[in-house]
Amino acid sequence: MASKDEKNLAAVLKKIDSMAEPERSLVQRTHEVIMDAAPELKPRIWYGMPAYALSASTPALITLRNDERVNLAFTEKVELVPAGGNDGMLMPAAWFFDSIDEATEKRIAEIIRRAIS
């Protein structure tokens, strides 16, 4: 019998597989970057899209949405920090992208590590 974590991962992979190209490849690679950056995260479906939490029974910290654009976002469960500088009290919480390269992968990994630290 599959564990809850295995079932949740299967659901996330099924959701990604159901997406049309080119978003499917983009979301699949982003999922891989997230899991490489923080293998302790548990993928699951959250409001119909892939998401990542610290356990199967805790709220999602990060969502990976594919609406009109691919969106990596923090949920309200992440400790958000004001950006400072020109952005003052605004708190970075979402990033939109339509392609992924090595620099973007590195930045996504940094974002993920910050979310769980």
Rank of each mutant, 00 (worst) to 15 (best):
G85S: 12
A103H: 11
K77Y: 14
A51I: 01
K14C: 02
M19W: 02
E32L: 12
S55T: 14
N66Y: 07
R65N: 11
V78Q: 01
P92E: 11
D87I: 02
R65F: 04
L9K: 11
L9D: 08
E76H: 09
R44I: 02
E6T: 09
A83M: 06
A115S: 11
S3V: 11
I16H: 00
A20D: 14
D17F: 07
P59R: 15
S57D: 15
M35S: 08
R113T: 15
G85F: 03
P22Y: 09
A20Y: 03
L26W: 00
I45S: 10
A103E: 15
S25M: 01
V70C: 07
I116N: 09
G48K: 09
A93C: 07
A20C: 02
A93G: 09
E102Q: 15
V70F: 01
K7L: 14
R24M: 04
A11Q: 14
D101T: 05
D36N: 12
E68L: 03
F96W: 12
M19V: 04
A103P: 06
Q28P: 03
M35H: 03
R113Q: 15
R44F: 02
G48I: 05
I45R: 10
E21H: 05
V81L: 03
S55N: 07
A53G: 09
A53H: 04
M89W: 09
I116V: 15
